[in-house]
């Protein structure tokens, strides 16, 4: 039933948007990603097994969209779209911790995509390590090592121990 389908997906949109915003930064791009995810989920609805959670399934679709978009973007020689930074200003900087949060947002953007994705799926979206592994299509051990490397790099960036320009080659 289509209305059921729409309602089930609708329930997940806020958290899909939150994850997308944290993942790509800019509001317009993030919502584009969510849009593509919903479009794909609707067109592949027959592949969803109702005995499985919808949420990880949707996040898996969105992750795949994200990866393929990034790949396409990387192949193109010409300009990158600007980030509108909208995702990073959700909290007014006048708040006491605002400055720190802005730093965190900046450091987060410095992480490699795959580390950022793991950090957010687990730390922000509350997925288990196994669920995150399923969503990203990698072994659990890869999730734990990316999580460890991502968090440590974030910590070092925040502590000023590592400059943003010194991006390590994976």
């Amino acid at each position: 039933m289509t209305s059921d389908r729409a309602r089930l997906i609708e329930e997940q949109i806020p958290s899909l948007r939150r994850y997308a915003r944290a993942l790509v930064g800019a509001r317009g791009e993030a919502d584009d990603l969510v849009h593509d995810c919903i479009e794909r989920a609707l067109s592949r609805w027959h592949l969803w097994r109702p005995d499985r959670d919808l949420r990880p399934w949707l996040f898996t679709i969105m992750h795949n969209q994200f990866v393929s978009q990034r790949r396409k973007a990387a192949r193109r020689p010409v300009p990158l779209a600007l980030q509108d930074d909208a995702g990073y200003t959700a909290t007014p900087p006048t708040q006491g911790s605002g400055l720190l949060l802005q730093e965190l947002a900046g450091a987060l953007a410095e992480l490699a995509d795959d580390q950022r994705a793991v950090l957010l799926l687990i730390g922000l979206e509350g997925f288990s390590y196994d669920e995150a592994a399923g969503i990203l299509g990698v072994p659990r051990g890869t999730v734990t090592s990316r999580l460890a490397r991502g968090r440590e790099r974030l910590r070092r960036l925040m502590a000023g121990e590592e400059g943003p320009v010194l991006r390590r080659v994976k």
Partner: peptide, 25 residues
Amino acid sequence: QQKEGLSALFDPVLGEPVPARLAPD
């Protein structure tokens, strides 16, 4: 702190009105 910070940064998105273009219909 990172986890708390991520929530503080991005949880507000949950409360934003969802743009009409994202409604499944």
